[in-house]
């Protein structure tokens, strides 16, 4: 299969994935009953009258985790191409190990640094 060809099924599946739920909901509209009670549209809050809005600002305790995630995730993604070429492409073992160490050390030092600085602490 060519590279472009291998993504044709993805497009077909994507179209189906986008088309199936609306079709199912259409069937539901044909089959389901309607009631006119107004209370059915209120937000659920254990049966009492809802207080305020849910879209308020509150402390996200893991903000620094999230920043760390972005850095590490991209760093890990950079290692995938490396993992494919390090054997059998004329690269010597020393170069392989040096490249691995460069990535690993930067990841581990980053992790330890954030840990020591208290980034991985659930802020109460």
């Amino acid at each position: 299969m060519s590279i472009i060809g291998s993504y044709i099924p993805v497009v077909i599946f994507l179209i189906v994935a986008l088309a199936v739920p609306p079709v199912l909901m259409f069937i539901v509209y044909q089959l389901s009953p309607r009631s006119k009670a107004a209370d059915k549209l209120t937000t659920y809050e254990c049966g009492s009258v809802p207080i305020g809005d849910a879209k308020i600002q509150f402390n996200i305790e893991y903000y620094l985790y999230a920043i760390a995630f972005i850095i590490f995730d991209i760093e890990i993604l950079f290692m995938y191409p490396w993992a494919m070429v390090y054997i059998g492409h004329g690269i010597t073992e020393i170069a392989v190990v040096a490249m691995l160490l460069f990535f690993i050390v930067s990841v581990v030092i980053g992790d330890l640094y954030m840990w020591k600085k208290g980034a991985f602490k659930w802020v109460k």
Binding site: L24, I27, L31, S32, P33, L41, T42, T43
Partner: peptide, 13 residues
């Protein structure tokens, strides 16, 4: 059964 349930979208949603 799920097909015969009313589809509700809350007013505030």
């Amino acid at each position: 059964k799920l097909f015969t349930k009313e589809d509700l979208i809350p007013a505030k949603a």
